[in-house]
Simulated assay, not measured.
Amino acid sequence: MFQLKKTVISEDILDKEFVCNLGACKGACCVDGDAGAPLEQEELSILKEILPKVKRYLRKEGLEAIENQGPYTTNEFGEHETTLIEGADCAYVIYDDQGVALCGIEEAYNQGDIQFKKPVSCHLYPVRIKQYSEFAAVNYDKWEICDDACSLGKELQVPVYKFVKQGLIRKFGEQWYDELDRVAKERNDRKV
């Protein structure tokens, strides 16, 4: 672990390699697990605001879950998450012709209907952020359903932090990311 401004970062995001391989996993991170995608406080009002434009992209089951539970849920720790369909698929999941799980929010964004790409936690995955009162912990979330992404990342030599560059910039800013990249390069130079 090392500190960068008000973040404490796991070295795994510099050392591990990762590139999503949707052809292999079929978007399993959006349908497996026991919770919805973590949401930040400011994303709650955004979800409510964009929902009318996103609805046309969603599946019937997702729409029903959102109608019954709301555009997001709150867990026992007071943390907000995307709504789930019967405790499994994210309510915002859609499928392409090959059966790959995609994000209905991101599809609405790609079509130019909304300006919000998707929850930042999804944009950052496999990086997870845990906010504490004085700092944020930035960790790599190793999940066996992403083994193919780890293999592809290793083959292409793409460290986790570079794979999620846009998500990290969105969360912490360009200056923070540039500093992270500098730290990574210095570490690599010391290894040689």
Rank of each mutant, 00 (worst) to 15 (best):
L156Q: 14
E134K: 14
A149H: 08
V158H: 04
R187N: 11
I66G: 09
I46F: 09
L180Q: 06
T7L: 03
D178F: 05
Y140M: 06
C90H: 05
A28N: 01
C90F: 08
R56H: 13
K48N: 15
P71E: 14
K154P: 00
K16D: 08
N68E: 09
E81Q: 10
L39I: 01
A101N: 03
A137M: 14
G87D: 00
D15M: 11
R182C: 07
K142P: 01
G36Y: 07
K191N: 10
D96L: 08
L152E: 02
Y72K: 04
F172M: 11
E179Y: 09
T7A: 12
S133W: 07
G23Q: 09
V54C: 09
S10M: 07
I13L: 09
N110C: 03
W143P: 01
D32H: 09
D189V: 09
E179C: 12
A24L: 02
Q175V: 07
Y95K: 13
L180D: 00
V183A: 08
T74K: 12
D148E: 07
Q98I: 01
E76F: 10
G167I: 06
C90L: 04
I169H: 07
T74F: 02
L58N: 03
N139T: 14
L156Y: 04
F163V: 04
V120T: 15
E107T: 11
W143A: 13
L180R: 08
I9H: 06
A35L: 02
I169N: 10
Y57E: 08
L168F: 07
A24S: 14
P38Y: 10
S133N: 14
T74H: 00
A88M: 11
Y177N: 05
I105R: 04
L168M: 11
Y92E: 09
Q157N: 14
G104Q: 01
M1K: 12
E79F: 08
Y132Q: 12
Y132H: 15
G62D: 03
N75C: 06
L14A: 04
C103E: 06
E144Q: 10
G70Q: 10
E86V: 02
K48H: 12
L51M: 13
D189H: 12
E106T: 03
Q166N: 14
V160Q: 03
R59N: 08
E49R: 04
Y140S: 06
N139S: 13
I114S: 02
E107N: 07
V31Q: 07
C25V: 06
D32N: 10
Y92R: 02
E144V: 14
K118M: 04
A91S: 12
L180A: 07
E155P: 00
C20F: 06
K162R: 13
P71M: 03
F77H: 10
C20D: 00
V120N: 13
G27Q: 02
Q41P: 07
I66E: 00
A24M: 08
E79D: 15
A101K: 05
L102R: 15
I85C: 06
K165G: 03
I94H: 04
C25L: 13
P126M: 10
A184C: 04
A136W: 01
I129F: 05
Y161F: 15
E76H: 14
W176G: 09
T73G: 02
R56D: 01
D141Q: 12
N188D: 10
E106P: 00
Y57F: 13
L180C: 05
S121K: 04
